[in-house]
Design a protein around this nucleic acid. Sequence first.
DNA 1: CAGAATCCTATTAGATACTG
DNA 2: CAGTATCTAATAGGATTCTG
Lengths: 132, 132
Amino acid sequence: MTDTAPHRGDRFDIAAPHRELLDQVLDKWSLAVLNELCERPARFSELRRAIPAVTQKSLTATLRRLERNGIVERVVLGTRPVAVEYRITALGKTLRPPVDIILNWIEAYLPSIEDARRRFDEAMDDEDGFGR
Amino acid sequence: MTDTAPHRGDRFDIAAPHRELLDQVLDKWSLAVLNELCERPARFSELRRAIPAVTQKSLTATLRRLERNGIVERVVLGTRPVAVEYRITALGKTLRPPVDIILNWIEAYLPSIEDARRRFDEAMDDEDGFGR
DNA sequence: CAGAATCCTATTAGATACTG
DNA sequence: CAGTATCTAATAGGATTCTG
């Protein structure tokens, strides 16, 4: 369902698999999870505590997706009170530098961008009601 | 609505503005638009032709968002049969290197990731029905 | 040409309850 | 503990129609 699933006009979009991967790896919760797992392996419940805003459902989905893409590894520890640990893989670690670079870009330019937003929003207010 | 809009459990998520910006700048169509505008300014209809899969509604929304964030600039050319040109801004250009770096990462590791997906999907087929 | 407005559907994601 | 299952609310996005 995920791969090779062009949903209509996509045959001209050569970058479609790239976009898809980008979405799967930089999606809403993946970065937070990656950030945790880059420091140390963590259990499911530890991740929930580390990322309070994520729901269990979304966390499960995020981990599955990352696991499927070979970015994280799911390790069943004991079978008694079932324990599962998530670890970043070697492949996952290669993701760190590029991600850090965008995060640094954001860090650097967020103020400029917030300025731009303010200017835009004020300009909208001025010619309010109609305009544009 | 966009900035400083914590939608419930987000008060602990210090990276929220970062995530939001990431979503606005690397979203589904933004990269395609950026890619076009980095080469040359383009008119609305040119962008539609260059990115056949985008609808007019989504393209409009994408351009507005990029404009609001100061990434692209909207220039009204003539007022007769109205002509509008979109250009990348200086701020927008700074986005190029980091984006290229992730795209290069994708280019480099997509095969490994597709392998991982295959392994994952096959493992799922094996313990089919139950398991996990 | 460059959109705005409207309608409508599909996918996402939250809340909630339950289980090996 | 580490999830699965279900239901529902919100949202994104496509198709279509209309306009300065």
